Simulated assay, not measured.
Amino acid sequence: MENKLKTEKSNITTMMEFVLLGFSDIPNIQGLLFGIFLVIYLTIFMCNSIIILIIKIDPALQTPMYFFLSNFSFLEICYVTITIPRMLMDLLTQKGHISLFACATQMCFVLMFGGSECLLLTVMAYDRYVAICNPLHYPLVMNHKVCVQLVTASWVSDIPVVIGQTCQIFSLPFCGSNTINHFFCDVPPVLKLACGDTFVNEIAVYVVAVVFIMVPFLLIVVSYGKIISNILKLSSARGRAKAFSTCSSHLIVVVLFYGTATITYLQPKPNQSEGIGKLISLFYTILIPTLNPIIYTLRNKDIMVALKKLLTKLL
């Protein structure tokens, strides 16, 4: 009995790395997956960079809405850079080894950028609310100083909470298996490897998810409830169509992002399937960031006009 306890203690204290299984269950298409994810990453990086560039150089896009959109595009680049390059390296080397510190760092930044994205989407909804429901006061309410303060708050307000939660998770003892059935260090699969009672940690995850996912989502719902109510009161059909067009892109992104994030972090632990969890994570870490630039450009006439201007100058 004493020897068994010593062995368990040794396993807990000596575990200094994890192994990310990634897509090792489908070994025949590792090369194909590498090619697909590389193209996706380069597409996300280039498309968002182009959005940032045209918003920066086109005078017609120097408005709060596009200021927030350029910050959102930059946030998307940061968000995917935390997961995809690491996944590409694992697909290439077929190893997947990641140190405890690197795993904690990756988790911290994924949660940080994810939380910032939730808050920034809420700020963007508030911007649309003021523009449509209170247009006369819009320039005063959404002046440059306020916009900078809102963006800064979106970027930094979740940092202390995320660092605290990451430290709490990685202060747990880990024993037995060190394999994470995922392609990055996400909270649910890492918590499954922890020894002992993780009830407090799970409650903490729920609380943080409610604060940074559900509360912002409810604020967005309230904002859009008032926006839609105001749009329907407009007498001009063209005015209604323009207002709906302005808001629809943002609304699509909100539904896609919040839907998958809610399933991942607010689903009860016993109901979480590792395979399904991995698939959902692919949606909100890779697929949705790929779709976002397309949604915002193809459904936005101002962006398309600015893009055509830029291409004309370059060609």
Rank of each mutant, 00 (worst) to 15 (best):
S116D: 05
L119V: 06
L120Y: 05
L120F: 04
L121F: 06
V123A: 09
V123E: 04
V123K: 08
V123M: 06
A125T: 03
Y126P: 07
D127G: 03
D127N: 14
Y129A: 09
V130F: 02
I132C: 02
I132V: 10
N134Q: 10
P135F: 11
P135A: 05
L136R: 07
Y138K: 09
Y138T: 04
P139V: 14
L140N: 06
V141N: 06
V141M: 05
V141C: 00
M142N: 05
N143R: 13
K145L: 07
V146C: 01
V148I: 15
Q149I: 07
Q149V: 11
T152I: 11
T152A: 14
T152R: 15
A153P: 03
A153N: 03
S154H: 12
S157W: 12
S157C: 13
P160L: 14
P160G: 13
P160W: 06
P160E: 14
V161G: 04
V161K: 08
I163A: 12
G164H: 10
T166A: 07
T166H: 11
T166R: 10
Q168P: 07
F170W: 14
S171D: 14
P173L: 12
C175P: 01
C175S: 13
G176Q: 05
S177H: 04
S177G: 01
S177P: 00
I180Y: 08
H182D: 14
H182T: 06
F183Y: 06
F183M: 13
F184T: 11
F184R: 08
F184P: 12
C185N: 10
D186C: 06
D186W: 03
V187L: 13
P188H: 06
P188F: 08
P188Y: 05
P189T: 10
V190T: 15
V190Q: 03
L191Q: 07
K192F: 09
K192H: 04
K192W: 01
L193R: 10
A194W: 10
C195G: 07
C195P: 07
C195K: 08
C195N: 11
G196K: 07
D197V: 08
D197A: 00
D197E: 04
D197K: 04
T198Y: 02
F199W: 12
F199L: 14
F199G: 10
N201D: 06
N201R: 03
E202T: 00
I203T: 11
A204Q: 02
Y206S: 09
Y206V: 01
V207T: 06
V207L: 08
A209N: 01
V210A: 15
V210Y: 12
V211D: 07
V211E: 01
V211H: 05
V211Y: 11
F212C: 07
F212R: 06
I213C: 05
P216F: 00
P216N: 09
P216S: 05
F217T: 07
L218A: 15
L219Q: 09
V221S: 15
V221L: 13
V222W: 08
V222A: 11
V222Y: 09
G225N: 05
K226P: 04
I227D: 04
I228G: 03
I228K: 08
S229P: 00
S229R: 08
S229E: 14
I231Q: 04
L232Y: 04
L232G: 01
L234C: 00
S235T: 10
S236M: 00
R238D: 13
R238V: 12
